[in-house]
């Protein structure tokens, strides 16, 4: 049996190949591959090992946030605060580790203390979001909108308290390795992401909590009457999203070697866009880690190809938007196809 995703019901006779393709859960992956193949003629550099590694390390932090977001989307929530968690965690973590009068500098444990600071920021904001949504019945969109506004402001303010510069640098070398280091030619961050993605996948598909997430997303009232602790389930989804954003912040901060308050400012719509392109529903009850990975891969490959083509920012924006739209239209059409059978 499959997990609690919306299984594609097939009651009718075998479908023509194009319909099967359209309904396949690998559609986004296939589109990515096709796009990549076409791009190989336009910008041959895209197929080099260096570019591919670049794509890989560029998608890692994005992927971790998107995985956290997937949990929240499955319970029909949304977490707009993820980017501000990244920013806040980045500057707080950096302020703990930095060689320029960091709180834990010289203790020998600065990297561990720093990473704990990252995770603490992520989980505290996640806890706050979750509490507001489940205890005070506030709409997730607004709760996380206000935490987003608050913490993106707070991150900048926090930085000004610590330094005259616009970011907090001089981070320990061993920390930077997490974001930049390579093992056997592959990014070290890949290992982190694999652990997170693997854990997330198992939670969603194999555990009681995973099944509860889908149930709450599909029908919270029925879930409550069936003995699902609905509030707890939603609460933990927000905490997971916060922690994932914090892990992503570790990777980003390591890559950039500085704690930056504007980190992740522009990725909010990319994160949600990637999840939705992958097939995660904004209305809850539908989503898989694999789909999110495909969505992130799709967006990252497009970003990289546009960058390689040397297009001006204007075209990058317009093309990216059009591709998101095209993907959404295809998705809408396949829904129509599903419904009409």
């Amino acid at each position: 049996m499959t997990s609690a995703d919306a299984t594609i019901a097939s009651k009718a006779r075998p479908l023509p190949a194009w319909k099967r393709l359209l309904l396949s859960e690998y559609l986004v992956l296939i589109l990515t591959v096709v796009y990549f193949a076409v791009m190989m003629f336009v910008v041959p550099e895209i197929a080099t090992a260096d570019t591919l590694l670049d794509v890989l390390s560029a998608m890692m932090p994005l992927l971790v946030v998107a995985i956290g977001q997937t949990f929240v989307l499955i319970v029909a929530g949304i977490d707009l605060s993820a980017p501000s968690i990244i920013a806040m965690a980045s500057v707080v973590g950096a302020s703990v580790m930095t060689g320029d009068a960091g709180y834990a500098n010289g203790s020998g444990l600065e990297v561990i203390a720093g990473i704990l600071a990252f995770l603490a920021v992520g989980s505290v904001i996640g806890l706050f979001n979750g509490t507001c949504v489940t205890r005070f019945n506030m709409p997730p969109f607004i709760v996380t909108l206000t935490t987003m506004m608050f913490f993106s402001g707070a991150a900048i303010w926090y930085t000004t308290v610590h330094t005259d510069a616009s970011s907090i640098g001089n981070l320990p070398r061993s920390f930077i390795e997490i974001g930049q280091g390579r093992v056997a030619g592959l990014p070290l961050s890949l290992a982190v992401v694999l652990v997170v993605a693997g854990a997330a996948h198992f939670i969603l598909s194999r555990t009681v909590y995973g099944r509860w997430l889908y149930a709450v997303g599909l029908n919270p009232k029925a879930a409550a009457v069936s003995g699902v602790p609905v509030r707890k389930v939603i609460f933990w989804a927000f905490v997971i999203s916060g922690v994932c954003a914090a892990i992503s912040s570790v990777l980003y901060t390591g890559r950039l070697e500085t704690g930056t308050p504007v980190l992740g400012q522009r990725i909010l719509l990319d994160v949600i866009g990637a999840a939705v392109i992958g097939g995660v529903s904004l209305f809850g009850g539908k989503g898989k880690i694999l789909w999110t990975i495909f969505g992130v891969l799709f967006l990252t490959v497009i970003d990289k190809s546009l960058q390689l083509m040397g297009l001006p920012i204007a075209s990058v924006f317009a093309i990216k938007g059009s591709i998101i739209l095209a993907a959404a239209i295809i998705d809408a059409q396949r829904h129509r196809l599903l419904v009409s059978r």
């Binding site: 299984t7 009681v208 909590y209 003995g227 009850g285």
Partner: peptide
């Protein structure tokens, strides 16, 4: 009911914990 979910997921919903064990709560 979860109208958008298949029959088996609906039937299983209230009994999941009975079928989960181990550290991770795997089903």
């Amino acid at each position: 009911l979860m109208m958008e979910a298949p029959i088996d997921n609906n039937i299983a919903l209230s009994s999941l914990q009975k079928y989960a064990g181990g550290l991770g709560g795997f089903i």
